[in-house]
């Protein structure tokens, strides 16, 4: 039972052939097998949002998914958000607005809002707070994160590569 199985995973546009036990969480496969340690692991039961990544462009908890389930899907992690040294508008806004302190939760927040701002490019503050409720941050008190997301949304609306 549960012998390791071969799988092929596409992460950030790159295909990887792996052999993993079916019960191995996607979060652990990303970190341990693929060395993509930007995805953080907090609660491991879907509450904290730290491990949020994108499955086919939609945000999901990596800790509630098994890597074996994701053959044939496109995964995106925090490592693919910046282009070289150029931060995404959302990352840049978080930097400018001091939207993080220790940074543990930040990857999950970035992945959540990279997807959300594509779906809703002009969110209200209430909408941003509703979505942000899925990501726990113990440092900032959230105010600067909300400011940063709204600023990023404006920058992204204002023009490409803001």
């Amino acid at each position: 039972m549960s012998t390791p199985v071969p799988i092929s995973l596409v992460v950030n546009g790159e295909a990887h052939d792996l052999v993993v036990p079916p019960r191995k969480l996607l979060s652990d496969v990303l970190r341990e097998d693929l060395n993509l340690t930007g995805t953080h692991v907090g609660c491991e039961h879907g509450v904290c949002g730290a491990c949020t990544i994108l499955i086919d462009g939609r945000p999901a908890r990596a800790c509630l998914t098994y890597a074996v389930q994701l053959e044939g899907h496109e995964l995106t992690t925090i490592e693919a958000v910046a282009e070289g040294d150029t931060l995404s508008p959302l990352q840049q806004a978080l930097h400018e607005e001091h939207g993080l302190q220790c940074g543990f939760c930040t990857a999950g927040i970035v992945m959540t809002f990279e997807a959300y701002l594509r779906e809703n490019p002009a969110p209200s503050e209430a909408e941003v707070r509703d979505v942000l409720s899925g990501n726990l941050c113990r440092c900032t008190g959230y105010q600067n994160i909300v400011t940063a997301v709204l600023k990023a949304a404006e920058a992204m609306r204002g023009g490409r590569g803001a």
Binding site: S2, P21, P22, R23, L25, D28, E44, V68, Q69
Partner: peptide, 11 residues
């Protein structure tokens, strides 16, 4: 917090 082993099926 890791699940107990299981056999995986993907119908």
């Amino acid at each position: 917090m890791k699940p107990a082993p299981f056999t995986y099926h993907r119908p």
